[in-house]
Design a protein around this nucleic acid. Structure first.
Lengths: 217, 217
DNA sequence: GTGTATAATTAGGCATGCCTTAAGAGGGTA
DNA sequence: TACCCTCTTAAGGCATGCCTAATTATACAC
């Protein structure tokens, strides 16, 4: 088995490597908020255990075994997030941190029962896809809300999961997965977007809008 | 905050000290399956943090602060056990080990919501009392089933929580908290008890019967 | 009272996972 | 080419939590 720490590394490597590129050691270190020396050390151990591949100055990538472990951790994380929101009634800005701790204390049995109880959910509360028990994860294609032009309608697919304050703000706007938005004005020169959400109209900074992934309708 | 390890110690000291006596270092070490040297070391740290009192050759006992922390951990443990059995449908022999891990990954918020969801349960699935959020725990008085005499009826209060095989066996007998049992025969010389449980009649070794706490009716 | 078994402690180590400091390697630019 | 900056690695440390072996302290029985 792997330690909690190693699970965190695998998870981070997976998320940072989703664009297909190997992850630079320094990027990994920054993401995990540790020194790059420590990251180097752990990566060496993960290489020994054949969970990652590492080429200096190129980066770290997951082996199939490493990817399987990473996806299992992500699955547990997102299942807990769903339980915490759907069953325990926590708000979506409170669940990420909690799930970060619970994910390492979860047996395959509990993982399975969580999934059953929740009805094999397809996403976490923030719209990110749920890996299957078999270690598959299909990321629904979309584009940043920031790229839409005036008049376009779209359905929100997912929002960032780690920033509590941002999530609280998005909740006040009603900007959550499955919701339909329509861009009214997209100000030029990377200016703000005016979007309609339900009955309400909101003005979003382009930076914020670029973090929200939508599927144009 | 205290580490997971320290939480385990506090929990063990609480449980071993329920008879009111301080806990011998060696007893503690045996219960936690560590060397007495390690136990000594940790106890010293807990003394420093004013969570326990220690007198060599006398034993370890909890300070009020230590007892509060111990009860909080026990509360989380038992709340998780209830969730795992009542909501996730695990059997009562599977939940102790799972809860041992989850209890250390639980915030006060999740603890509170668990209690709400479960309807402020008064006991764990094995019948042990639930500490309140305020750190109170009332142990219902009872006696071992082994002490009853022929003809006596009693209600099962609680069974041991740590022995999976025993719990599976008790489940097949229907011997669980709230169930009414009647002693038909109590064989002399510490012989077995014949008890009626529901429609069925079972023969229990005296040793087993001494681990089941009941309230005579 | 004294001896002995048991309990406790000291001394010294090991693994994990983090750190800082400093030295070496790679690559781009003046 | 030489310099510089960044990335990487080596060396040495620290805290936690565990270990064994050897020593010392205590309590209880005779």
């Amino acid at each position: 088995m792997v330690t909690e720490s190693a699970e965190e590394y695998l998870e981070a490597i997976y998320k940072l490597g989703e664009e297909g590129q190997p992850v630079a050691l320094s990027t990994l270190a920054e993401c995990l908020e540790i020194s790059s020396v420590s990251a180097n050390e752990m990566v060496r151990k993960l290489v020994e255990r054949k969970l990652v591949l590492y080429e200096p100055y190129k980066g770290v990538s997951l082996t199939p075994a490493g990817q399987a472990k990473a996806l299992a951790v992500i699955r547990r994380h997102r299942l807990w997030e769903r339980l915490l929101t759907d069953v325990l009634d926590l708000s979506w800005d409170q669940v990420h941190e909690e799930a970060c701790r619970l994910e390492h204390a979860t047996s395959p049995l509990v993982e399975e029962r969580l999934a059953q109880l929740l009805g094999e959910p397809k996403t976490c509360p923030h719209g990110h896809p749920m890996p299957t028990a078999e270690g598959e994860m299909a990321v629904e294609a979309g584009c940043p809300l920031a790229e839409l032009t005036a008049g376009q309608r779209a359905r929100v697919l997912r929002v960032p999961e780690g920033d509590d304050a941002l999530l609280r703000y998005l909740a006040t706007l009603g900007l959550k997965p499955q919701v339909t938005v329509q861009v009214e004005v997209a100000a030029p020169f990377q200016g703000p977007l005016t979007v309609q959400v339900g009955e309400a109209r909101h003005v979003l900074g382009r930076e914020l809008a670029s973090q929200i992934v939508v599927r144009p309708l």
